[in-house]
Each structure stands twice: as structure tokens, then as C-alpha cells.
């Protein structure tokens, strides 16, 4: 992989930057506009299909979509591993005068 090339901006990195979108049904900027909704599964089927067709033939958009999904996934994994420590839970129940209910949790 050529990292020097990869570090350039999307516009300069894209082989077809001057005819952005001409070789796809949707232009790349439309992918960005709908990226959140696409990742969240909130797009209608037709637009979803158009985006999938686009990213199959556009490596840059595919990388943005995949790394964005991975970014979210890594934060979700990090979140799942974060729980309230037992000592802090006990202090909370004491502060709320709910000590009697600790064992019932």
C-alpha cells in the first residue's frame, strides 16, 4: 500500500476527481450526505441499493464507509466493557439510603 499517496485528501487521491461521480450512479458527495442514514439502516431500499452499487466500484467511498463502521464498532465495544465498579455501586446505594436493596439487585 502506498501510504504517501493515501495520506492525500480524498479529492486528490481519487483517480476520477475531475469527473467526480461520472462513472457511478451516485456522486461521492451524495454518499457522504447519506452516510449516517446508510450506516444506521434508515435509508429506503432504492437509495440503499444505489449506495451499495456505488461503493462496490468506488474504493475511496468503500474505505470511508468501512472505517467509519469500524470506528463506531470500536467505541461500542469500549462502551460495553465499561461498567460501574462494585465499590462505587455500594457507595451509590448508601448515598441514596438504599443499602437494604443491594443484595436484591
Amino acid at each position: 500500500m502506498n501510504h504517501e499517496h493515501d495520506h492525500q485528501t480524498q479529492q486528490h487521491n481519487h483517480e476520477h476527481s475531475h469527473d467526480y461521480g461520472h462513472d457511478h450512479q451516485l456522486p461521492c458527495k451524495d454518499i457522504l450526505t447519506n452516510l449516517n442514514a446508510y450506516i444506521d439502516g434508515e435509508l429506503d431500499n432504492a437509495l440503499c441499493r444505489d449506495i451499495e452499487t456505488h461503493i462496490k466500484s468506488c474504493p475511496n467511498c468503500r474505505i470511508v464507509v468501512n472505517t467509519l463502521k469500524k470506528t463506531i464498532q470500536l467505541y461500542q465495544m469500549d462502551g460495553q466493557e465499561t461498567t460501574l465498579p462494585d465499590e462505587a455501586r455500594h457507595r451509590l446505594m448508601t448515598r441514596l439510603d438504599l443499602d437494604d436493596y443491594v443484595a436484591k439487585e
Binding site: 500500500m1 501510504h3 493515501d6 495520506h7 485528501t9 480524498q10 487521491n13 457522504l32 475511496n60 474505505i63 470511508v64 468501512n66 472505517t67 469500524k70
Partner: peptide, 8 residues
């Protein structure tokens, strides 16, 4: 706009 296009 995405600044870096690197597939990690």
C-alpha cells in the same frame, strides 16, 4: 469531508 483515505 474525509481527510484521510486509508483502509485500516
Amino acid at each position: 469531508l474525509p481527510r484521510q483515505i486509508i483502509d485500516w
